[in-house]
Simulated assay, not measured.
Amino acid sequence: ATMSCSIVAKKRGLKVAHLIAGTRSFDMNMPREVNRTIVDAISDYLFTAGMVANRNLNQEGMIPDYIHYVGNILIDTVRYNRHRLLQPVWFSSMGLEKKGYLLLTLNRHDLLDKKQVLSALMQTVVDKSCGMPIIAPLHPYVQKAIKALEIDAPHLHILPPQSYLHFGYLINNAKGIVTDSGNIAEEATFLDVPCITLNSYAEHPETWRIGTNELVNEDPVVLATMLERLMHEEWKHTTLPDRWDGRTAERIVQTLINGELK
């Protein structure tokens, strides 16, 4: 939708602004990598979340005046809602306590298709959690893939997807997170919650360079090491990336206003 709308807007003579411009996985087999590369190439405003994104755009020959380092717009939402988060009604009835559970999320279809890899990763999470509850809000297609593994783990609780405020509460109060989502790693960095990402890259490297995130790819051995570190309270604390302060929208609006005045 982002790519198609951008192309239509450009052909109608309208200006295009791309939020989170310059993020790259460098895997052109990913549809969204192709899409965002196209959008960046035709945008009039390239709003970036970090200096790595700036560098990517510069290396691709984008016009420097089009690039605006404004910060991560996702953090604006987290900052605004941080004090509005809601405890799910089932939280207490399940006997959960703050910082007393692990949060597990999975979404990537390519990982779910690798049944042996997925089984090894899931078994590692179960084994290294030391009996601590594992809360896993999952979409139906992910639930089906996990249940098909037939893992014996009474402390693994598979739940339906949660609302934004409920899920934000689970992130904010988890002892740690295991995920394949870059967005969750960004939220965890802002909230200073330990995060393990089942991927070989992060679209915002700030999450693992100075944030709370660690990349383990799809390696159960590395995952086990990180979970042991997490369970033994040996995790790094976050250093908030520059301009991830929840005021990105203000910078974007100001940039647009200044652009119209020229």
Score class of each variant (00 low, 15 high):
residue 113 D to N: 15
residue 110 D to R: 09
residue 119 S to R: 11
residue 146 I to G: 04
residue 166 H to A: 07
residue 54 N to H: 04
residue 116 Q to I: 07
residue 127 D to G: 13
residue 46 L to F: 10
residue 123 Q to T: 11
residue 86 L to S: 08
residue 6 S to H: 03
residue 219 D to P: 12
residue 83 H to Y: 12
residue 176 G to R: 00
residue 179 T to F: 07
residue 182 G to W: 06
residue 108 R to D: 06
residue 2 T to L: 14
residue 147 K to V: 09
residue 104 L to E: 10
residue 82 R to I: 08
residue 238 T to N: 13
residue 246 G to A: 08
residue 212 T to L: 02
residue 162 Q to K: 03
residue 107 N to L: 02
residue 140 P to F: 05
residue 4 S to F: 04
residue 149 L to Q: 10
residue 48 T to D: 06
residue 243 R to A: 11
residue 158 I to Y: 13
residue 177 I to A: 01
residue 93 S to I: 15
residue 115 K to F: 04
residue 156 L to R: 08
residue 139 H to D: 01
residue 197 T to S: 14
residue 36 R to P: 08
residue 205 P to V: 03
residue 35 N to E: 10
residue 154 P to D: 14
residue 128 K to S: 12
residue 228 E to M: 15
residue 29 N to R: 13
residue 180 D to Q: 06
residue 236 K to C: 07
residue 96 L to E: 05
residue 157 H to C: 11
residue 72 N to H: 11
residue 249 A to H: 11
residue 98 K to N: 14
residue 93 S to D: 13
residue 96 L to V: 15
residue 13 G to P: 14
residue 129 S to G: 03
residue 48 T to M: 03
residue 87 Q to G: 12
residue 102 L to D: 09
residue 115 K to I: 01
residue 19 L to S: 04
residue 57 L to P: 00
residue 13 G to S: 09
residue 207 T to R: 00
residue 43 S to F: 03
residue 167 F to A: 05
residue 53 A to L: 02
residue 82 R to M: 12
residue 224 A to H: 03
residue 58 N to V: 00
residue 88 P to D: 08
residue 11 K to C: 02
residue 206 E to L: 08
residue 135 I to A: 04
residue 48 T to A: 01
residue 40 D to W: 03
residue 96 L to K: 03
residue 172 N to L: 13
residue 176 G to D: 02
residue 42 I to Q: 02
residue 159 L to M: 15
residue 258 N to C: 07
residue 129 S to Y: 06
residue 162 Q to G: 06
residue 70 V to G: 09
residue 42 I to E: 07
residue 215 L to R: 10
residue 257 I to E: 15
residue 170 L to V: 08
residue 246 G to Y: 03
residue 110 D to S: 09
residue 112 L to P: 07
residue 92 S to F: 05
residue 16 V to L: 04
residue 188 A to D: 01
residue 21 A to C: 05
residue 173 N to D: 05
residue 123 Q to K: 10
residue 42 I to P: 01
residue 126 V to D: 15
residue 175 K to Q: 04
residue 14 L to K: 06
residue 66 Y to I: 08
residue 141 Y to P: 14
residue 124 T to F: 10
residue 78 V to S: 07
residue 252 I to T: 00
residue 133 P to S: 10
residue 111 L to T: 08
residue 13 G to D: 04
residue 109 H to K: 09
residue 193 V to D: 00
residue 225 T to N: 10
residue 74 L to N: 05
residue 190 F to V: 10
residue 190 F to N: 07
residue 133 P to Q: 13
residue 203 E to C: 10
residue 232 H to C: 05
residue 204 H to R: 04
residue 203 E to G: 11
residue 46 L to K: 02
residue 65 D to A: 07
residue 73 I to C: 06
residue 63 I to K: 02
residue 75 I to G: 04
residue 20 I to F: 01
residue 35 N to I: 01
residue 225 T to K: 07
residue 140 P to L: 07
residue 35 N to H: 09
residue 257 I to F: 09
residue 9 A to D: 05
residue 6 S to N: 11
residue 217 N to M: 12
residue 191 L to M: 15
